[in-house]
Structure formats: C-alpha cells, structure tokens
C-alpha cells in the first residue's frame, strides 16, 4: 500500500518537467507551430484571395457574372468548409502522402491545414468584398479601369481593413488547427501539449502550453487590430 503511494509520487515527480527545462521543450515547438501557421497562411492568402475575387465577381452583378461557374466554385468551397478539421485531416491522408511523401510532420500538417484554411479565407474575403458598396466598382468602371485595375483598387483596396480582420480570424483558426494537427505527430505546441500534458499528466507543461497558446492568439489579435487601425483612415486620423 505504502509502496504504491510512493510509486505514484515517484511517477509524478518523474513526469513533471522542471521549470528550467521548459524552454528547451517549448522553444523548438513554438518554432514548429510558427512555421506551420506561417507556411499555411502564405498558401491560404495566395490561393484564397483569388478564389474570393472570382466568387465575388462571378456572382450576379459582378464584373464577369457567370452563374454556372459561380455555383460550381461555391459548391467546392462549401465542401471544404463542411468537414471538421480532424475528420478532414484523417480523410485526406492518402492525398497528403501523395503530395508530401509522408503523413507525419510539418509538411504533412500543411496540406490539410491549407485545404481547410483556403475555403475559410475565401469566404471571409468574399464577405469583405460584398460589403464594399457596388457604386464604388461602378465608379471605377466608369473611370475606364480594366477588370484587374478595378479589382485591385476598388474592390480589394477598399476591403483591406476588413480583409486584415479576416486574416486575423483565419490565423487564429490556423493556430488552433496546428494544435489539432499536433495530435497526429505534426509537432509544434499542440504535439507537446498532447504528449506531455495529456498523455503524461505533466501539469507544468500543460499549463505552459496553454499560456503560450493564449499569448500567441493575443499577440495575433492585437497585431491584427493594429493593422486594421493603420489601414482605416477614420480610425488612424482620430486625434
């Protein structure tokens, strides 16, 4: 009986990582998370934005209205948005392996994260574009702009603050997804939290990862808010 207790105490003592050792564990994990989210966001923005522009302008009243293509594209985006991330990640393992040659690690996490992030971002940006008054596009057309010029100046240009707001939301969602991806061995904070905090009951690591995630999300949110403010004239100029 006494032996049992001391064994349990010993296991706990073994499991809890001493504070000085935390950085060695968390810093590389943080680097992995940042790399994952960074790469994913790069892919998400560069593919999600054109999709959003296409959706917006193929919808009725857009620059190149095309109901058929709009419906198909919209349907594909909806599929991408329908699956819970964990299910999506598991379902596309063969595809991930085909693309990256592996189904663990950062490279393997980037594929499902991008697939989930692109339609998410596309919808966010499409919404931002819809909020720009139609008359602005009309004025740009009347000013003799080409479709590309109009999209750049009158649509995306006008929606920049809203898109940055969407980007913030999207980045935070990707941090969350990176933690989920961690459970299948993608590394990063999520992996540390699951293997140490959850599977080994290491309270110190658990708490540290939670605090780290809160700090990351807070920094992203504050950074996003600052960017929105910097790009909105009436917020920037408020004396």
């Amino acid at each position: 009986m006494g032996l049992n207790i001391s064994a349990a105490v010993q296991i706990r003592a073994l499991a809890d990582t001493p504070l000085p050792e935390l950085p060695a564990l968390l810093v590389p994990a943080l680097g992995e998370t940042l790399a994952m989210v960074g790469i994913v966001m790069l892919i998400v923005v560069s593919l999600g934005t054109p999709i959003a522009v296409a959706l917006h302008n193929m919808a009725p009243g857009g620059l190149f209205e095309h109901r058929g293509t709009y419906s198909v594209l919209s349907w594909i985006v909806n599929i991408g948005r329908s699956l819970p991330f964990l299910v999506l990640m598991a379902a596309i393992v063969p595809f991930t392996r085909f693309v990256t040659g592996t189904n663990i690690g950062i490279a393997a996490a980037v594929v499902p994260m991008s697939l989930a992030g692109i339609p998410f971002f596309a919808r966010l940006v499409e919404n931002c574009l819809r909020d720009v008054p139609r008359s602005v596009t009309a004025a740009a057309r009347a000013s003799g702009g080409s479709p590309l010029q109009i999209i750049r100046t009158a649509q995306l240009g006008e929606a920049v603050p809203a898109i940055l707001g969407g980007l913030t939301i999207n980045t935070i969602a990707m941090i969350e997804y990176s933690a989920i991806a961690g459970t299948i061995g993608a590394g990063g904070i999520g992996y540390v939290a699951v293997t140490y905090g959850y599977q080994r009951f290491d309270q110190t690591v658990m708490l540290a990862t939670v605090l780290l995630l809160i700090a990351m999300v807070t920094i992203v949110q504050l950074g996003g808010d600052a960017l929105v403010k910097a790009t909105t004239p009436h917020l920037r100029r408020r004396a």
Binding site: S135, V136, A138, A139, A142, S143, G144, T153, E158, P233
Partner: peptide
C-alpha cells in the same frame, strides 16, 4: 467609357484614398 464622365449618387469615392 472615358469619353463620358459619370457622377454618381453619394460620390462613390474610395474611402481609403
């Protein structure tokens, strides 16, 4: 279109310019 100048209701200016 450049030969016809158009003025819209509510001006429709770029808000960030």
């Amino acid at each position: 279109r450049r030969r016809i100048g158009t003025i819209f209701q509510s001006a429709s200016l770029l808000s960030r310019s």
